[in-house]
Write a protein that binds this DNA or RNA. Structure first.
Lengths: 235, 235
DNA sequence: CGCAAAATTGAATAGTCTCAAATGTAGTGG
DNA sequence: CCACTACATTTGAGACTATTCAATTTTGCG
């Protein structure tokens, strides 16, 4: 049986554009890949040899300067596509933040498959356009927001991406979620130092905007005030 | 005669993937559009109704906060594609920095044309992937570089993009170019204030790294030292 | 329980911003 | 051609935010 049929991201990943027959062909050139927390799939500057769909786990995309300063320039979740098709070099490092599973392809194979399956390429285009919008929105944050605004924006984005509602109180939605990032990584996402992130978060806790049950968990108590603090655009 | 045949970006824009017949069809749904310096083609938050190829001129893509803080999140040159296909809203404002010419399409028409022309969609995908890489590289600059590093990086990028060599001296390549940006716009690209940009540039001039014949012109005198100052990755 | 790593807290510093003023530039009409 | 205006840029001084460096506390794990 084709393992794609039971794939957790069957309906979200770019392969959702394929019919069962096509999926069979794709499956023959792909291979399943398990990664451990902390492992890197590819490195900035390397030749682009592999592309992949994320089946489970969270990845960070990073770029760094010689002296070690690092910026997280993207976060990839299940059903996202990583790697650089149609280009020779990886412009960033891709690292697993949790244990993870991928569906990986040799770039050459992928690029041979793709021209015969324009619907899949279309899916990839849509995903890439979404990513571009997201990256550009983040540029506004990096270039123009203050530290409290950055942290508030980050927590809201995370709550939207990761947050199931915690309705234990029966109250209005209070998003609670587990961060897949340590403080240093949050700092690398926001273009701040770990100390500044820590200070902002404890201040928000003291102000009653959020709760921090432990260092990996966040609960948003005052979403409206957090929204206001984030300077989010009313879309 | 189909005006596409004499189009200045015929071989670089996404329509370069089309044969003359297909181009005729595309030409029928597109219309030529002239814009003046300062005019905006679309606004952040608006419905996405138009997409376009840039024929001539330079555009800025911007996003701003309520209080007026603005970030330039992209720059578009001739042969680039602007607008948001396959999505409902424009995530940013597109404004002409110079007088400009476009080849514009109603998004609906464009999206009807596209499925029958996967080679063109492929071109668009390649362009979008390039843009994404560029945006992410810029995120490293915005999040982690200092003011002098930012300005040096910017000047080098501009010299690469706009600079013909000025070989009047017969010497090694000294790139000279005209900035399509005022100082405030440079600040909006780099996530700095106009004053900081100004100070950095005069300092670089005093240090002999660059020359500033007038406020729109730059000549790079010491490319290696500028490179060093920019903390560019040795690719 | 004890250790190493992660996170927090504190104090001092540096870098960038803010506000204000001065200078330079391009364009206009006399 | 020049004076005048409006605007862009530069320069300066001071304030403030975020960083740096150092020390302490907390956390997770063997």
């Amino acid at each position: 049986m084709n393992p794609c049929e039971t794939c957790a991201v069957r309906n979200q990943a770019i392969c959702s554009a394929l019919n069962p027959d096509e999926l069979g062909v794709l499956n023959r050139i792909g291979r399943s890949l398990s990664m451990q927390k902390g492992q890197s799939l590819m490195w900035e500057g390397d030749q682009s040899l592999t592309v992949a769909n994320i089946i489970s786990g969270v990845f960070k995309l990073t770029s760094s300067l010689d002296d070690g300063r690092e910026q997280i320039i993207g976060i990839a979740y299940p059903s996202d596509f990583v790697g650089r098709p149609f280009g020779n070099t990886n412009e960033y490092t891709v690292t697993a933040l949790t244990d993870a599973k991928l569906c990986a392809f040799a770039r050459a194979d992928f690029e041979k498959f793709t021209p015969q399956h324009p619907q899949m390429e279309h899916k990839l285009l849509e995903k890439t356009l979404d990513e571009l919008d997201r990256a550009r929105r983040w540029m506004l944050l990096l270039g123009r927001k203050t530290a409290p605004e950055k942290v508030a924006s980050f927590l809201l984005e995370m709550s939207q991406k990761l947050g199931g509602n915690d309705c234990s109180t029966g109250d209005t939605a209070l998003a609670a979620f587990e961060l897949p990032f340590g403080r240093q990584q949050v700092a690398d996402i926001l273009g701040l130092t770990i100390e500044t992130v820590s200070r902002q978060m404890t201040q928000m806790k003291k102000a009653g905007l959020i709760d921090l049950p432990d260092r990996r968990h966040v609960r948003i108590l005052q979403p409206e005030q957090l929204e206001e603090m984030s300077m989010a655009q009313p879309v």
